[in-house]
C-alpha cells in the first residue's frame, strides 16, 4: 500500500493571520460605525486569539495544501445538535459547556480499562497538525487544520483484546450544560462507532484543537473524533466514553433515520442521500460547487478497507 505524504505545511504559513485580523478589525469598525453596539448579537464571534495556543504541535502526515476555511467560518457554522439545530446555535450557546476538568472513560474489550483525565490522556503523545478536508452529509465542506493524536496510538495504550472488533464512542449527556438535549431531536447521548481497522487507521485522529489552538466548544471541545474520509457526523464531539466492543455499535443518526444514514457513512458521490445528491459540494467560502471525491479524496489511503464490500448497501 502506498501512503502518500503530502507536503507538510504548518497552518501559520497557509492562513494569513494578519490579513484575517485586518479584515476582522475593518468589520468591527464598520459594525460600530453603524451603531451596532445597540444590537446585541452582531460581531460577537470571538477571534481565534480567544483560544489558548497549543504548545509543541508538529506537522503531521496526509495534509492537504488546499486553502483552509477561515477560523471564523469553521467556528460559527456548526452542526452540534446538543446546542440547538441551527447552524449558528452552537457558537451562541456552547459557552455553557464546562471542558475543564474533563475525563474520558475507556472500557470494554481492553486489558487496561480506566478513567483518565484529559491531560494525562494526551501527555504521552506528540500533538500533530492534520490539515483535512471535512465533508458534511449536507453537501458542504471545509478544510480544517486539526490538532490531535492518532486514535490508534491511544487505543493501543489500553491494550485491546482479540474480541475488540469495533469502537463505540459517546458524547457527554448533561442537559444543564447542553441545552439542546432538553428536546428529543435525537436519542441522547450522541453515540458513534468505527470498525477497529478504521479506528486504527493512521488517518483517524482524536482532536483537541484546531488552527493551532484548543478546540472552541462549538467544535466539540475538549476532545472529538476526526475521520476525514467519512461524513462529518461520524466525527463525534465532546467525547466522554470510548468502549471497544465485539459487535457493531449503534450510531445516533442511523438510529434516527436508518434509510438515510448508515453505519459506515463513507463519503461517496455515487450514492446519493435519499433526499439530496452527494455528487457535488459547496466548499465554504466558495461560490461554485465542486465535485465530491470518493472517500473525500482519501481513497488511496482507505479504499482497501472496503474492497469486498457493496458500498451501495453499506452506505
Amino acid at each position: 500500500m502506498l501512503i502518500k505524504t503530502a507536503t507538510e505545511i504548518p497552518t501559520r504559513e497557509i492562513t494569513d493571520e494578519s490579513l484575517y485580523l485586518k479584515r476582522r478589525k475593518f468589520l468591527m469598525g464598520a459594525a460600530s460605525a453603524a451603531g451596532a453596539a445597540l444590537l446585541p448579537g452582531i460581531g460577537h464571534g470571538a477571534t481565534q486569539d480567544a483560544y489558548r495556543q497549543l504548545p509543541d504541535v508538529r506537522p503531521g502526515p496526509f495534509g492537504t495544501d488546499e486553502q483552509p476555511t477561515s477560523f471564523e467560518d469553521a467556528s460559527s457554522y456548526n452542526n452540534f445538535y446538543e446546542f440547538g439545530t441551527g447552524k449558528s446555535d452552537p457558537e451562541r450557546r456552547a459557552g455553557s459547556l464546562r471542558t475543564d476538568p474533563w475525563t474520558l472513560k475507556v472500557g470494554g474489550e481492553v486489558g487496561k480499562p480506566g478513567v483518565i483525565g484529559l491531560e494525562s490522556l494526551i501527555a504521552p503523545h506528540q500533538l500533530e497538525e492534520r490539515v483535512y478536508r471535512m465533508r458534511c452529509v449536507e453537501a458542504w465542506s471545509m478544510v480544517i487544520p486539526w490538532v490531535g493524536i492518532p486514535l490508534g496510538d491511544l487505543l493501543t495504550r489500553f491494550e485491546p483484546t482479540s474480541k475488540a472488533k469495533y469502537v463505540s464512542f459517546q458524547t457527554l449527556f448533561d442537559p444543564s450544560q447542553m441545552p439542546g438535549q432538553r428536546r428529543n431531536v435525537l436519542d441522547w447521548p450522541y453515540v458513534e462507532g468505527l470498525r477497529i481497522d478504521e479506528a486504527m487507521h493512521p488517518l483517524t485522529i482524536l482532536a483537541v484543537g484546531m488552527y493551532g489552538r484548543v478546540l472552541p466548544n462549538q467544535n466539540g471541545a475538549p476532545l472529538r473524533l476526526v475521520v476525514p474520509w467519512k461524513y462529518g457526523f461520524k466525527g463525534i464531539k465532546s467525547i466522554v466514553s470510548i468502549r471497544l466492543v465485539e459487535k457493531e455499535p449503534p450510531t445516533s443518526w442511523n438510529l434516527s433515520a436508518p434509510h438515510e444514514y448508515g453505519f459506515y457513512a463513507n463519503v461517496n458521490p455515487e450514492v446519493d442521500h435519499p433526499r439530496w445528491s452527494q455528487k457535488r459540494e459547496r466548499r465554504i467560502g466558495e461560490f461554485f460547487k465542486r465535485k465530491t471525491l470518493p472517500f473525500n479524496g482519501y481513497a488511496e489511503q482507505v479504499a482497501h478497507l472496503y474492497q469486498d464490500m457493496d458500498l451501495r448497501a453499506n452506505y
Binding site: 464598520a30 471564523e72 467560518d73 460559527s76 457554522y77 447552524k87 458542504w140 459547496r282 461560490f287
Partner: peptide, 11 residues
C-alpha cells in the same frame, strides 16, 4: 452587502 450572511451566504 455587509457580508454578514455567515459562512454559507447562498444557503
Amino acid at each position: 452587502i455587509r457580508g454578514t450572511l455567515g459562512a454559507n451566504p447562498v444557503e
